[in-house]
Simulated assay, not measured.
Amino acid sequence: MASITRRAFASASAAAALTMGSGARAQTYPSRPIRWVLGFGAGGVGDLTARLVAPKLAEGLRGQPIVIENRPSAGGIVAAETVARSEPDGHTLLLVTTTTATAAAMYRTLPYDTMRDFTFIGQLAAFDHVIATASDGPYQDLRSLIAAAKARPNGLNLGSIGVGSAQHLSVELFKSIAGIEAAIVTYRSTPELINAISTGEVQAGFETLAPVLPQLGGRLRALAIPSAARFPGLPAVPTTAEAGLPGYLIRSWNGVCGPAGMAQPLVERLNQELTRVAALPEIRSRLLELGVETAAGTPAALRELMQEEIARYSRIVTDARIERL
């Protein structure tokens, strides 16, 4: 009994020492610049969000610079693997996005486990999608587009960017909920998609709102926003439920993760700073101009969101009989 008691005491002492050590490290964290890895190139909504947030985040982290590192690849896999294999000391972070969830749904195997190989820190932002058509095209609202598709099965082309992206899978979901048959045409980039919509190469395009926003009222017309509420910057554009298609909801999001095994005090510190920055009026207003809304939350909430999104997009892939990569 005495031996068991001594072992228990030793274990408790070791745990206490580890906790105190983690707390001490949190007090001196970060001790060098933080590397924030993004799985896509410069200029996109995620990149713009990270670059806007990084300086304000750095101010609360002992003034250490936050260096944005773009590592674009299909599904953001290269960036995610880079972070998953890094030391869990809080100096290497990942901008985790909807693409992280769609990659888990689309790829048979990944060089990491999305739910086990990362420490979830907190959500940063959420942004709407939009269904858009040519401003001089025949479709004045979503009902007329759906009616035309039903009248001519497989007679309409619907556009999105890359196969397996949230945008592409959102078109598959749209077809299923609307009960239509239509061809899906995918493009390598948003500018190519916008050109295809405006010229009538596709009758409607499905994209995140931010890069399309400058074209609305010019080359493009917004038919609906697939969100629960109207986008504040486009108060005249209805939600998909208001436009006659209840149940069709798609939003993209991003947040911050680190490698698995990060100490809890570091997670709490980073989450606290993300929450602080997300509440700054200048950050909120600037992001809103880009079609992005801040959406801070707990580490547990981000983990739950990821689980839900992987399950959701996996169902879309299965129901649409999309071949996994």
Rank of each mutant, 00 (worst) to 15 (best):
H91R: 08
V267Y: 03
L274C: 11
P65V: 03
V163I: 03
E59F: 11
P281F: 10
A8K: 10
A54N: 09
M1T: 02
G297S: 15
T208V: 15
G244D: 00
R7T: 06
G21S: 12
G297W: 00
E242A: 14
V212H: 00
S135R: 13
P138S: 15
T119Y: 06
L290G: 14
A2L: 06
E268H: 13
S31Q: 01
A296H: 08
P299M: 09
A103T: 04
D117I: 01
L52E: 07
V53C: 10
R276G: 12
A228I: 09
S314L: 09
G162V: 03
E69P: 09
G155D: 00
V171W: 00
P299N: 07
Y248L: 04
T199H: 12
L94V: 02
L220K: 01
N195Q: 15
G43F: 11
A224T: 05
A263H: 00
S170Q: 00
E192W: 02
A166D: 05
V171E: 00
A301P: 03
I184R: 04
L61M: 12
E304H: 14
L145C: 13
A126K: 14
I4L: 07
A26H: 02
A263W: 00
G159L: 05
P72E: 06
V96E: 02
A236N: 08
G46F: 13
R143E: 07
Q27N: 08
A151I: 01
V292P: 07
V277M: 06
S3L: 07
G43R: 06
P235V: 09
A320E: 04
L110P: 08
P111Q: 03
L234S: 11
A278R: 07
M1G: 11
A10T: 01
E304W: 08
L305A: 15
S3G: 06
V317F: 13
D136A: 15
F174M: 04
P211W: 04
Y112S: 00
I4E: 02
T98S: 14
E309T: 05
S170Y: 00
G23N: 12
A222Q: 01
L169R: 04
F231L: 12
K150S: 08
L288S: 15
Q272S: 15
A236G: 05
V83Q: 00
P111L: 04
E69W: 11
E304Y: 13
M1H: 02
G258E: 02
L220Q: 04
A10H: 01
F118D: 01
A311C: 11
L274A: 14
A182T: 03
L142G: 10
A279N: 11
T186M: 06
A104I: 02
F118I: 08
D113E: 13
F118C: 12
T298C: 13
G261Q: 05
A311I: 06
V256M: 13
T102P: 12
V317Y: 10
A236V: 02
I131Q: 08
N195Y: 14
Q264F: 04
C257R: 03
W36S: 08
G39T: 10
A14S: 10
T119N: 12
G60P: 03
A296F: 07
R230L: 05
T98V: 08
Y107N: 09
L48G: 15
R152C: 05
G39L: 13
G122P: 06
R219A: 14
G233K: 15
A104W: 01
S252A: 15
S189G: 09
A79R: 00
I283V: 12
